[in-house]
Amino acid sequence: MAAAQQERAAARLGESTLMEIYRVMLLSRRLDERSWALHRQGKIAFHISGMGHEAAQVGTAFAINRTVDYVHPYYRDLALSLAIGLTPTDFMLSLYAKQGDTSGGRQMPSHFSKKALNVVSGSAPVATQVPQAAGLAFAIKYRQQMGLVDPNDASQPRLALTCLGEGSTSQGEWHEAMNWAGVHKLPMICVVQNNIYAISVSVDQQMAVRDVADRAAAYGIEGVVVDGNDVLASYEVAHEAAQRAYNGDGTTLIEAKTYRIVPHSSDDDDRSYRTREEVAEWKAKDPILRFQKWLLNEQILTDARVQELEAEVKAEVDQAQAAAEAAPDPAPEAALGDVYAPVEG
């Protein structure tokens, strides 16, 4: 299954896109690692990490019409956001809460947003984005049904992608969203990045079923489980989900099985709830190393190119950090801005 998925994905993507995927995964990882370091140095107040989730996120992102289709991410979606087009500087500006941050310095970091890319601003209460993503998908279908857009026009959004963790599927918000998605056959992809823990609470305390994807049947939507540490398999199931949405065949619930190889956030200590052996076991299954090995094996990547990419990515992260450190703070009075959008006409 996995081998066949990888083969199909690789054929569809082609070498240059495969390399682009690798580069984004690497960039996300190095940016994430730098953020942890900056926190330990006392330079930033907070970091929440997506380390370990890069394959599930980047594989998914490359399967949709990036910058056109709607994306309503969650706080671990750094790699996904970079794949859509947010920049390392965007992220660094949010870490430092500097002027130029897409929230204007108002949000904590990792609340990814950029209207020009159709990436919607999220909040911190989990799963709130999922029924809103159903609303975005509802709007897509509405415009198509009203004849306001051509369903095959790829310059228009044709699906809404949203992500959340497995713990967040305990929220009523998620249930209501999946129900709308099923009832209205919405063009939507919901990716549950199942990393086994909701901060400290393990998945068996969240649900009595083994696979979140099993629940899809209850909503009349497609449900699929994928190895979220396999970027090609993640791409492949997301590709199929996107085609389903584009063809008017409704929503797909993708459960990407993965693992967060670091604590929940810079304020967490994961030693109280999981063993070092378990973490080490998952680190050995690192999705970036795994993809790197595959690319080397396929002779798409060389050892020399690995080193070059590391240097390029490091320079990019350095540059982003420098830009954020040099950026001014927002004016304190900017706290009063953007409460109401101006009424026109």
């Binding site: 809103q132 709007a139 809404a160």
Partner: peptide, 11 residues
């Protein structure tokens, strides 16, 4: 919430 999403999409 669906209303919010639809409004974000400019309905």
């Amino acid at each position: 919430a669906v209303g919010i999403g639809a409004a974000l999409a400019d309905l």
